[in-house]
Design a protein around this nucleic acid. Structure first.
Length: 596
RNA sequence: GGUUCCAUAGCUCAACUGGAUAGAGCAACUGCCUUCUAAGCAGUAGGUUACAGGUUCGAUUCCUGUUGGAAUCACCA
């Protein structure tokens, strides 16, 4: 049963009966009633004035009266100007709650037989993960969970960027200045150790450029001629030729990085179904370049470089293969797209990549369409905004980044501090306490990064840090823990939620009704989040639900009521709110604690 | 300079895709713990939705222009 759908049907019938106007259900649009008015669903009558030949207000009144008379689900109505506010019947809400209780999979949509590949994280192996990566990872993980709940089969792929000039920069710096340092010898986590050398390279490289410019060289030329850059390029060439020493160093350093990443991913609670490595995929696109030349999608310039001409689509020309025959980013991505399709036969393929690469993906998708790839329509760039600091953009090379490991540690520390101050878990073991700090700290961080619309850039102020009060992860976790306490107390009284029948209460408190209808909305929120690829739909929903529950908690007594049916109803309602909050948070990759 | 995106309370964000008096949180101020967890609840204050036009019953939302900001336009990724 879907109340909104049902009301739409009733409204269609009413239009037919009263005005002899034939509407389809899809034309009817309902919106939530603003809380200053009575009711839950609102139908706007302004657009129908011409057809009904009545004022919007009169139209609303006629419709409302008809609904109240003929629909058992409509208990009452009121009309304000052109707004018809509908009050859903108590019995309907009880039936709704009963149905939700009976369905442990409430909020999980039936399997739709479609598969989707979600690519996210995709780190470079030359530096540790930072705040920007956190947004990427949390988004990718969450959207995967949401798509699963929406009925898709999901494969999560991490395409590791493990080769290229930037990797050689770290390698070169290590070779020159590393003195055989290892994670073991220095006590530095592998990814951080490598990152240090990437920064070192940039510092020395800049010195070289400066010196050359001072000697009278043009800056652009100096950037290319600087000895360090030339050495790095030479190293890349050796790597591509399979030079043993270079490849050996590359393997060694990448292994250190992977050890570091593994720890970070584990802390984040992020994982993948498959890994792809660019060192394996970078050659793949070359066949497609040939194919594109045959199909006249690409053309070759005199120097041998290959280009896609997209000027007929309002874009310019784009390089797909260098004149020396080596591949560029675009070449690889063409090849990897095919590879993914061969492996997974996806209906949709999502790329979770920052919006600085918008243009790249526009071009990539257009080319694949021109090449007649059957999967081209299912490609989607989930383009998310950058995370800015108050000081501006983060730059790894300049060391002005918020490090992921450090930030997570700080969040957990802050959670610990808050928890100890409140002193509610003094009977916890050390392990239990540490688990809780982790759940809360990561919950705060994930919620903070996911609550903003992915498309928008957002600001992170490390000074003010992340809140644990108000519109936050811990607020929702707290609400869950509160309800867990209620359920425990119910258990002591031998009242078990799954044995409660919510029907047959004499009347419902308005907040009980609101909560029930909110629970009822969960599946449609999951669908909306999946359709928009937007976890923020879920964060907002979880917040609204938790907020409303806390209002209920403050206003209504659960165990201190005369009517045992009313008490049971409230326990069941609480239980189902908790169940739904837990599910919603799971879609965000956030755990909830039983106590906090 | 071309293209794309953005601009909402002091700050961080919403606004169900064109609907009611634009909502939350933080920060400030007032109340509420002898009763189920105060990481909570209730309230006060805070707005010319960057600016100027236009479209219509109705605009934060759509169109045009202006101002300010970001990204991108590499034989980098």
């Amino acid at each position: 049963m879907d109340i909104e759908n049902l009301l739409k049907e009733q409204i269609v019938k009413s239009f037919d009966a009263i005005f002899d106007i034939d509407l389809s259900k899809d034309e009817i649009h309902l919106q939530p009633t603003r809380k200053e008015f009575e009711g839950s669903h609102t139908f706007v009558t302004f657009p129908y004035g011409k057809a009904t030949r009545k004022s919007p207000e009169e139209t609303g009144k006629l419709l409302g009266a008809f609904l109240k008379e003929n629909s058992p689900e409509v208990q009452d109505f009121n009309v304000v100007k052109g707004f018809l506010n509908i009050v859903v019947a108590d019995e309907t809400c009880m039936a709704v709650l009963s149905a939700i209780k009976e369905n442990p999979e409430h909020g999980e949509l039936p399997a739709n037989g479609k598969s989707v590949v979600v690519e996210y994280s995709s780190p470079n192996t030359n530096k540790p993960l930072h705040l920007g990566h956190l947004r990427n990872n949390f988004l990718g993980y969450s959207i995967s969970e949401i798509l699963k709940a929406a009925g898709y089969t999901v494969t999560r792929v991490n395409l590791v960027n493990d080769r290229g000039i930037h990797i050689c920069k770290s390698m070169l710096a290590y070779q020159k200045w590393g003195k055989g340092e290892t994670p073991a010898s220095s006590g530095i986590k592998g990814d951080h150790l490598i990152g240090n050398y990437y920064v070192k390279f940039d510092k020395e490289y800049k010195k070289e450029i400066e010196a050359l410019v001072k000697a009278g060289m043009d800056e652009d030329i100096a950037k290319k001629k600087a000895p360090l850059m030339r050495s790095a390029q030479e190293m890349l060439k050796k790597w591509e030729e399979g030079d043993q020493e270079v490849v050996g160093l590359w393997k060694q350093m990448n292994d250190w990085v992977y050890e570091g990443f593994e720890v970070t991913y584990k802390n984040m609670g992020i994982d993948f179904d498959a890994y792809l490595y660019e060192s394996n995929t970078y050659i793949l696109g070359k066949d497609i370049v040939e194919e594109g030349l045959e199909k006249k999608v690409f053309f070759k310039k005199d120097n041998g470089s290959v280009w896609a001409d997209l000027s007929d689509e309002g874009l310019d020309q784009k390089l797909v293969l260098r004149s020396d025959g080596t591949s560029v980013y675009m070449t690889q991505d063409l090849g990897t797209a095919d590879l993914k399709y061969q492996h997974y036969h996806f209906d949709k393929s999502i790329y979770v990549v920052g919006n600085e690469q918008d243009y790249h993906f526009v071009v990539l998708f257009k080319i694949l369409r021109k090449l007649g790839r059957p999967y081209a329509e299912g490609l989607y760039h989930l383009s998310y905004g950058m995370v800015d600091l108050p000081t501006g953009k983060m730059k790894s090379r300049e060391g002005t980044v918020v490090d992921a490991d450090e930030l997570m540690r700080e969040m957990v520390d802050t959670a610990k501090k808050h928890t100890i101050e409140l002193g509610k878990i003094e009977d916890f073991s050390q392990d239990q306490a540490n688990d809780l700090y982790h759940i809360l700290g990561l919950g705060a961080l994930k919620y903070f990064l996911l609550k903003v619309d992915p498309k928008k850039r957002m600001l992170f102020d490390p000074q003010e840090s992340i809140e644990f009060q108000g519109h936050t992860g811990p607020f929702i976790q707290y609400t869950y823990a509160r309800i867990a306490a209620i359920v425990r107390k119910g258990h002591q009284l031998e009242i078990e939620p799954d044995q409660i029948d919510p029907k047959g209460i004499s009347s419902l408190h308005p907040i009980e009704k609101t909560l029930t209808l909110l629970l009822h909305e969960f599946p449609s929120k999951v669908k909306a989040a999946a359709d928009d690829f937007s976890p923020s739909v879920i964060t907002q929903y979880a917040y609204d639900l938790a907020k409303e529950y806390n209002r209920f908690y403050a206003e209504v007594s659960i165990f201190n009521v005369a009517d045992p049916k009313a008490m049971e109803f409230r326990i069941l309602l609480s239980f189902l709110v908790a169940r739904t909050l837990k599910k919603a948070m799971k879609l965000l990759g956030i755990d909830v604690p039983d106590r906090m």
